[in-house]
Amino acid sequence: MRRREASLAPWLVILLIAVVTAAIEPRFLQPGNLVNVLRHSAVLAVAAFAQTLVVVAGEIDLAAGSLVALVSMVSVLAAKASGTLAGYAAGVLTGAAAGAVNGLLVGRFQVSSFIATVAMMSYAYGLAAYIGGGVPVEFPPDTFGWLGAGYLGPVPVPVVAALGAFAFAYVLLHRAALGRKLLLIGGNRRAAQLSGVDVARSVFWGFVVAGALVGFAGVMLASKVHSGQPNLYPTLAFEAVGAVAIGGIPLTGGSGRLVQSLAGALIMGTLENALTVLNFTSQVQQMVMGAVIVFAVAANVALSRGLRRPAEARPGALGT
């Protein structure tokens, strides 16, 4: 029962933000604005799903910010050369390839994921700037904008795309062997190894899938701004880690539901929109988001300490 309460908390936070904002500024509740919230959260949500796959294994991916920039450049160049679909595919493949590099370094060569992905952050940005000579590439085919800015009836395509990514990541994390293995590795790496999990291989595939999802987020972004930009969304990785942490998933790995990341991304999206509606400047927004991430995680740590206390007193519990 406590677990259900804990998993409900993020949704209550969204409700709280919405109620407070609506009380001050009723415009927040207009249907157009609510759709806006979803549309803006979509990219962050997809990046947060990618991050979740990595975080449950006890690793972290800080490269998403420059990776989406590289993906946007490659995707737009490919779309210009051979059409929209080729552009989308090239973007996702670029993400997966970068994920494979991370996965090899972390899984096979046992470089800490922090270092491997910070290095990736640096060279992905360098490559993104290099292939375009430091300037954006523009004018992909008109159809290229469908994924990021189109509508299916009243529903924005990016929201549908994010739901699709959710379903994909959900099946992988909670219904497939790979997800189980990643959770097991995050819970206790040695135990995973002893029970026959090929840790290096699982971590590798976790990073590849995460990279492909980041690639997808990058394509959504590129499609939204209708260009490839070397400085597309530099803080994406940080916000994705923030969303995962706010959703209540411990960054130490071993546990986490994908729906928590969804809630975390929605909290950040709602908060950002609320601050915009309330006329705060982007600088103040950034400050508030930074503070909120730390406080949310601190509250989470305090909560889990409180929940753990009875377990510690249990006779026979092992530990240092």
Binding site: V241, V284, M289, G290, V301
Partner: peptide, 22 residues
């Protein structure tokens, strides 16, 4: 508070950048 170093300094990364621009 027991916040992981990555998260704590990440929050500061965003906060300080916003404060600097402000």
């Amino acid at each position: 508070l027991g916040v992981q170093p990555v998260v704590a300094t990440l929050g500061m990364l965003m906060f300080a950048r916003g404060a600097a621009l402000l």
